[in-house]
Design a protein around this nucleic acid. Sequence first.
DNA 1: AATTTTCCCAACCGCTTGTCT
DNA 2: AAGACAAGCGGTTGGGAAAAT
Length: 251
Amino acid sequence: MVRAPCCEKTGLNRGPWTPEEDQILVNHIHGFGHGNWRALPKQAGLLRCGKSCRLRWMNYLRPDIKRGNFTEEEEETIVQLHQKLGNRWSAIAASLPGRTDNEIKNVWHTHLKRRLVDPTMESGKQQKKKKKKKKKSESSNASTVDFIEESEMERFWLDALSMNAISTETPTDQSNSGFSSTTTIAAISIDPTDHGQPEDELHVAAEIESFWLDPLSIDFASPSTHYYNLFNSDNDMDFWQEVSVQFQEIF
DNA sequence: AATTTTCCCAACCGCTTGTCT
DNA sequence: AAGACAAGCGGTTGGGAAAAT
């Protein structure tokens, strides 16, 4: 029997996702969940197949995804689990919270497999490369929702925020114009053309603080395309304590 | 400075598994 | 029990970026 295609391919977008598509998908899932991946693209107004939407969400947009380089401990865990489980990437991923099977698979094929053959592999050139890459990713603007957890505090807030974002409100505006207030809580949208350098920490901190003081003060419908990483590791503890106070007052 | 090679990772493909009728 | 459908999984690939020449 010939297997039916997972979806009608004609007229559907393929390849890399645009920030706009990401926004639509995130908005839709925060508002309505993802009960049926096959039906989701139509409901959300996306020209993608359900499988592609699922993959994008599971591997990239999910708020609990941990981004950035793998730690030595994580890499060690992967190596050990791979010895036990083989190429069962999803089983390995289950032991590494925030990491996806796809990411683990990539890391295995690009670093760890070779390192097992040649234990000196990670020295010199490779490390240099990694450093450079890390630096680049730190200084660049996230092109989409980009969560980087560096501390338990940030992890706590990420969880708390995402739960409240889902449970307290339902978006009323399903147009493609931007984040609704519910989805922007974890990814505040900032228009770089309005405010000079998007990486301007002081401005971003002020913007975020004003959000906590007045949740309606930010124009969430703005069609801007830069999302600042609210959980930036550079934010100090005082900042997060202030956020904590505001959070308690609001909720 | 230009070109080629290598590396990395997001996304795709097709098979398997689970669930429902 | 069997078929249809959806979701999950692992292998593979394409293209962009960085490094090497």
